[in-house]
């Protein structure tokens, strides 16, 4: 390879056009000093848009989000190369709590609800970084978004999966973030609830103007709401395009959406074979 590893990607349309809120540049993440999980991951999330990041189990989607949020240390992981920038500022090594203060909020996989606290306490925790917040007014605001949460009493651990997801999103709203990253919000939910959750994601984006980086297994739903999508495999991006483009892509249809025609293995694997030089 003749190009330097740190050179930005030239063929990525998002990199050259539009206002980028978050960008990853050739990020490499290593766990326990030996396990390479992200191998030159690059992506751009644009302001005011929904960006989807899709991929199979173990591709490194959650690791990507945790790397952005600065949560790798608790798992003995580390960004060894590349940069993460937010609003054109390098935040690769910024502490996790400062990132939240700056407006990046991660809704973790499995919702990350504190189950032995009440719904209100969970919501109050969301506003932890905002000392001067009018907590009562904002909780009322969240309840307007999710009327169902207001009716429920008791510990958050007893909420249904869908309600927990709503609580997690409500808690994210309390932090008044500019960018919400969501790790598989549809996990373990019934199809009807999945629809509801994606509706909420769209409302967050449209009504509150929050940029969203969405990690999903449910490619179908994700590409429907996303403005732009990335597909990752083995720790890097293998394909990207607008939501509409990706839905039409034969490879994506075959691997992620289902219902593609059966063809020879050689043809199907096309995007994996296409070399993507950095």
């Amino acid at each position: 390879m003749t190009m330097t590893a740190d050179a930005p990607k030239k063929d990525d349309p998002a990199a050259t056009s539009g206002d980028t809120i978050l960008s990853l540049n050739n990020v490499e993440v290593v766990f326990n000093d030996v396990i390479l999980v992200l191998r030159g991951m690059s992506l751009n999330a644009r302001r005011g848009q929904i960006t989807a990041l899709l991929g199979a189990n173990g591709a490194g989607k959650s690791t990507t989000l945790k790397a952005i949020a600065g949560l790798l240390r608790t798992e003995d992981g580390e960004i060894t190369r590349g940069t993460v920038s937010y609003n054109d500022k390098d935040i690769t090594r910024m502490a996790a709590d400062r990132k939240v203060r700056d407006g990046i909020f991660l809704v973790m996989e499995g919702r990350g609800i504190v189950q032995d606290m009440t719904i209100r306490e969970n919501l109050r925790l969301g506003a932890f970084t905002r000392k001067d917040a009018d907590i009562e007014a904002e909780i009322a605001e969240v309840y307007k978004f999710f009327p169902r949460l207001q009716e429920r009493k008791g510990l958050a651990g007893y909420l249904s999966g869908g309600e927990q997801q709503m609580l997690a999103i409500g808690r994210a709203m309390m932090a008044k973030p500019k960018l919400i990253m969501m790790d598989e919000p549809s996990m373990g939910l019934s199809p009807l609830l999945v629809k509801e959750v994606f509706g909420i994601i769209r409302r967050l984006n449209e009504e509150l103007g929050i940029s969203i980086l969405l990690v999903e297994q449910n490619a179908n739903m994700a590409l429907k709401v996303a403005d732009y999508g990335y597909i990752m495999e083995n720790g890097k991006i293998v394909l990207d395009g607008t939501g509409a483009e990706l839905v039409e892509n034969e490879d994506v249809k075959e691997f992620y959406l289902g219902g593609g025609e059966r063809r020879s293995f050689r043809n199907v694997k096309s995007f994996r074979r296409r070399k993507r030089w950095l």
Binding site: T74, V114, Q115, M117
Partner: peptide, 21 residues
């Protein structure tokens, strides 16, 4: 505020960190 933060940390450190604690 910090009492809640402490309880959240006791529950799960990574979750607490993701909330900006």
């Amino acid at each position: 505020r910090w009492g809640l933060a402490m309880r959240a940390t006791a529950w799960n450190q990574q979750i607490a960190q993701s909330l900006g604690i």
